[in-house]
């Protein structure tokens, strides 16, 4: 499902003395089926944009198109439920939103609320628990007896149980250990592919944006400054610096290596694995490296 922001402006507490502008003339196209990373410094407006993607916030200027639905500044929008069902948001620290007696009930809550029959809701919950790598027994446990990493997975299952077409992820791995982080990010990527999702990832991690996304948008001071392919965005270190961002570590190391040796690697290395291969290749071509 496609999402389009056209000339979107947003002010918190509009028409009060506390009015604070968060977004100015944001134009952002999220094509159906894309994996878009939204990056930007703290306070750049990333989270405010995110809340427009399922009409949690309505623009104070401009238009947001969510699939066929049009959310327009100054026009009262009806039936936002159908939007919320199709665009699922995994907020930061989603485990703080768990509340039900058992994991099963917690995961079923969303679908039931949207009129999914009980049997179907339960089927989804059971399937998701397996998919998210949780043991079956957790279904009957209280979510509050689980470890932090497990709670995070249950909360994510709750969003996936709505079977959204668009999945919006706000720093979904914050606070997890490195393995947990990688597992969850790999899982989202797999879901993106197998369920034909449109995925939007809001992140501080340039490494995750480079590894998983096929499009990157940079937010800065409430505006969307540039969008493009990861290779394009991350090879322009000067531009990243202007927006107080850094290239992923693999690209910075590639630059150091190239400056030091005078060699030019085949392509921009978006991941550590690609960088290792590219360096090995360049050294082999020069007849060096392996003894």
């Amino acid at each position: 499902m496609e999402i389009l922001l056209e000339g979107v402006g947003y002010s918190y507490a509009e028409n009060t003395p506390f009015e604070k502008r968060a977004l100015t003339d944001v134009n952002l196209h999220i094509p159906s089926g894309s994996y878009t990373a939204i990056i930007g410094h703290t306070g750049s407006g990333k989270s405010t944009v995110l809340q427009h993607l399922n009409a949690l916030l309505k623009p104070t200027e401009g238009v947001v198109m969510i699939g066929e639905r049009k959310i327009e500044a100054g026009v009262k929008a009806k039936d936002l439920r159908s939007i919320r069902r199709q665009v699922g948001i995994v907020f930061q620290f989603p485990e703080q939103q768990l509340f039900d007696e058992t994991v099963l009930k917690d995961i079923m809550f969303g679908p039931l609320n949207f009129g999914v029959p009980e049997e179907e809701a339960e089927r989804r919950a059971r399937e998701l628990v397996v998919q998210l790598g949780l043991p079956d027994e957790v279904l009957e446990k209280s979510p509050f007896d689980l470890s932090g990493g497990q709670m995070r997975r249950v909360a994510i299952a709750g969003v996936l149980a709505m079977e959204p077409k668009v999945l919006v992820l706000d720093e979904p791995t914050a606070g997890l250990d490195p393995r947990g982080r990688r597992e969850i990010m790999d899982l989202f990527h797999e879901l993106h592919v197998t369920k034909n999702l449109t995925t939007v990832l809001v992140t501080h991690s340039m490494e995750d944006a480079a590894r998983y996304a096929d499009r990157v948008a940079i937010m800065h001071k409430g505006r969307c400054m540039v969008t493009g392919e990861p290779k394009e965005i991350f090879s322009n270190e000067e531009q990243l610096g202007d927006y107080r961002l850094q290239a992923p570590r693999s690209i910075r190391l590639q630059r150091d290596f190239e400056e030091r040796t005078g060699l030019k690697l085949e392509s921009i290395s978006l991941t550590e694995e690609t960088l290792a291969k590219n360096i090995a290749l360049a050294l082999a071509e020069e007849g060096r490296g392996s003894l």
């Binding site: 490195p178 393995r179 190391l253 550590e272 694995e273 960088l275 360096i279 490296g289 392996s290």
Partner: peptide, 24 residues
Amino acid sequence: LTEMGLDLPFAMRMTHLLQEAGVN
């Protein structure tokens, strides 16, 4: 350490990946 769910510092991870890719 990685098996325990931890991660090595970036330069060490790269060293290992380069060794796997055949850089001695």
